[in-house]
Design a protein around this nucleic acid. Structure first.
Lengths: 145, 145
DNA sequence: TTTATTATTGAAAAAGATTATCATTATCAG
DNA sequence: CTGATAATGATAATCTTTTTCAATAATAAA
């Protein structure tokens, strides 16, 4: 999705959901929607402050919470931290994350449902969700090292 | 692996690695090695205190850190928390975790290497690691609800 | 066994990250 | 414009994890 399209979608969703469009909130929306990298609250705070100088870190936390609740962003879990956020995928996709710079991309994987059904049957679990994530070094970071 | 076999293996590995075998450390080893569930430091602390009453929470953190460094336990990441530890699998396997009770089991999945190679090629990432985790309700928790 | 070395311990404090409180401000419907 | 109130940012409070440090206990050497 185009960045402008994404920010438009997010602001509209916020508005439709009864949330107000404030300068602080929009600065966080812009930063996250435009980022190719998973950002933690402090990252997002430092970037968004360039657009909204008075911004408080607490507002970043609150905005991320709302965006997640609306399904617009997802929290990214990685070996070195679990507090970063990324624009949500369209449809369910899997993630590949750069362990150097947190650049993340979605990919459409194999259909895991046969596997999930098999494991569910063999172990007796009722499966609710799954994660498939790859970790590695992105092309850009490979060059810079 | 049998629990006794596992604790023997862990204590031996600790010793061979130059670590001392203390009552506090062994109580944590016993608790984690015997647990079917992923335990966070506080869980492990409360259980291990039954065997070693004077135990301090800090020692649990330190012991888990060493066990992880030796590859004997792994840190489990889940939507509701990323600080729990589980006995490591023998060989690389994937995880299925109960979102109610943290019971976790390993399973041998499909070979993901073809997928990983494809994604690596398409996105230009040099892949280092991957996670495949399923989340659901274990048989026991299903009965109790 | 006894002793010396030093890794380990637990308590307390510190640091970091996240959440709650609250008076002030700003958005938006009317 | 104006009023209702959602949202803000500063501060404080929580919670988790790490650091510090003197006392203790495990191990190797005598």
């Amino acid at each position: 999705m185009e960045i402008n399209e994404r920010t438009a979608h997010w602001t509209q969703t916020l508005q439709v959901s009864g949330y107000r469009l404030t300068a602080a909130r929009l600065s966080v929306v812009n930063v996250i929607a435009a980022s190719q990298k998973a950002l933690n609250p402090m990252d997002a705070y430092l970037l968004a402050r360039q657009e909204c100088p008075g911004l408080g870190l607490v507002t970043v936390y609150r905005t991320l919470e709302k965006l997640e609740e609306l399904g617009l962003v997802v929290r990214v879990h990685a070996p070195d931290g679990c507090g970063a956020y990324l624009s949500a995928a369209e449809g369910h996709e899997h993630l590949i994350i750069c362990t150097h710079c947190q650049r993340a991309e979605y990919f459409a994987g194999d259909d895991l449902h046969p596997l999930m059904d098999r494991v569910a049957a063999e172990h007796g679990y009722q499966i609710q969700d799954h994660w498939l994530q790859l970790f590695g070094i992105c092309p850009e970071c490979r060059e810079n090292s």
